[in-house]
C-alpha cells in the first residue's frame, strides 16, 4: 500500500482517468439535474469517487471518513432536508436574473482557466510519496499530528461542532404557541365540519398495487384522490393507472369467460364511460 502511494503506477493512471470522468460527470449532473434528489445522488457519486482518490493518494483515514461521514452522513442529511423541504419547491431551471447565466458561465470559465493555467505553470513532476510519513500507519501519523501540532485547532474545531449542533437546534426548534389538540377534540372537529369522518380510505378494492403513488379505485372503478398523499399530488408524481387497469381487468374477465366456455352474452356490468361522476369523499360519506 505504501509503495502505491509513493509512485503513481500505470494502474493508478487508468483508475484516475476512468474514475475522474465519473467524478466530473457526477459534478455536472449535480448542477444540471432538475430535481434536488438527483443532484444529491450525483454528488454522492462524485464523493465516493473522491474517496477512492484519497485512498489512492495514501490518505486511508480520510478516504474512509469521506465515505462514512460525507457520503454516509452529510449527504443523507441533505436528502433528509430535500424530502422535508423540497417537496413543493419547484426548481425550474429558467433563469430569472438578467445575464446571470452568461456571467456565471463566463466567470466560471475564466476562473477555471486561471486556476488551470496557474497549476500548469507549477513544475510538479513527481510525488515525494507518503511512505515515510505513513510508516507507522496513516491513522497513527494523523493522530500524532492532531494531538501535538494541531491540538489547538482540533480543540477549536470541537468547540465549533458543538456550537453548530446547538445552533441547529436553536434554529429549527419551534415553540408551541397553542395546546396540541387531543384525539377526541380532533374527531369532534371532524364531525362538526362534516367531512371525512372515518379514516381516509386505503387503496381501493380493485387496487392492483400497494404503492403509495397509485390511487385506490372506487367500486365503480374510478380512482379516489383521497387514497394518495397530497404531497405526491402536488409534485405531480401520482401514477393514474385506474382506467387502463380497468380495461385490462375487463379484457381478462372476458378472456377467462371465453376460456371457461361459459360464453355469457350479457355484460356483467357496464363500466361508466364518462367515468368520474361519483367521486371523492362522497363515496366515503355514503358509507
Amino acid at each position: 500500500m505504501t509503495s502505491l502511494a509513493a509512485a503513481a503506477s500505470t494502474g493508478e493512471a487508468v483508475q484516475f482517468w476512468l474514475l475522474g470522468t465519473v467524478a466530473v460527470v457526477g459534478a455536472l449532473c449535480t448542477i444540471l439535474m432538475k430535481r434536488a434528489v438527483h443532484s444529491a445522488l450525483s454528488l454522492a457519486g462524485t464523493m465516493i469517487v473522491l474517496a477512492v482518490f484519497y485512498l489512492a493518494n495514501g490518505a486511508y483515514f480520510l478516504g474512509v471518513v469521506q465515505i462514512v461521514v460525507y457520503t454516509g452522513a452529510i449527504m443523507m442529511l441533505f436528502l433528509f432536508v430535500v424530502m422535508l423541504v423540497g417537496v413543493t419547491a419547484a426548481d425550474s431551471l429558467k433563469e430569472t436574473l438578467k445575464g446571470q447565466r452568461w456571467l456565471a458561465a463566463g466567470l466560471g470559465l475564466g476562473f477555471g482557466i486561471l486556476l488551470i493555467a496557474g497549476i500548469g505553470n507549477a513544475s510538479l513532476k513527481e510525488f515525494n510519496g507518503l511512505g515515510e510519513a505513513n510508516a507507522g500507519g496513516n491513522v497513527q501519523g494523523l493522530a500524532a499530528l492532531i494531538f501535538t501540532k494541531y491540538v489547538f485547532a482540533f480543540e477549536i474545531t470541537g468547540a465549533l461542532l458543538i456550537t453548530a449542533a446547538v445552533g441547529a437546534m436553536v434554529l429549527t426548534h419551534r415553540e408551541r404557541t397553542e395546546r396540541a389538540r387531543t384525539q377526541r377534540e380532533q374527531s369532534e372537529a371532524r364531525v362538526r365540519e362534516g367531512k371525512q369522518v372515518p379514516p381516509l380510505p386505503a387503496p381501493g378494492v380493485y387496487a392492483r398495487h400497494n404503492a403509495v403513488d397509485i390511487p385506490g379505485l372506487l367500486p365503480d372503478g374510478t380512482p379516489s384522490e383521497l387514497t394518495v398523499n397530497p404531497t405526491l399530488r402536488a409534485r405531480g408524481q401520482i401514477r393514474d393507472v385506474s382506467r387502463e387497469s380497468l380495461a385490462e381487468l375487463k379484457a381478462l374477465e372476458r378472456r377467462s369467460e371465453d376460456w371457461l366456455g361459459r360464453g355469457s352474452g350479457e355484460e356483467p356490468e357496464a363500466p361508466p364511460s364518462g367515468g368520474a361522476s361519483p367521486k371523492e369523499h362522497k363515496e366515503g360519506a355514503k358509507k
Binding site: 436574473l97 446571470q100 456571467l103 456565471a104 466567470l107 466560471g108 475564466g110 476562473f111 486561471l114 486556476l115 493555467a117 496557474g118 505553470n121
Partner: peptide
C-alpha cells in the same frame, strides 16, 4: 440577490488569482 453577490465574489476571487499569477511573473 445572493447570486449576484456570489458573481461579484467570484469575480473578485478571479481578479485576486490573476493578480497573484501576474505578480509571480506568469
Amino acid at each position: 440577490f445572493v447570486r449576484s453577490y456570489a458573481v461579484q465574489m467570484l469575480g473578485g476571487a478571479a481578479v485576486l488569482v490573476a493578480a497573484t499569477l501576474l505578480m509571480r511573473g506568469v
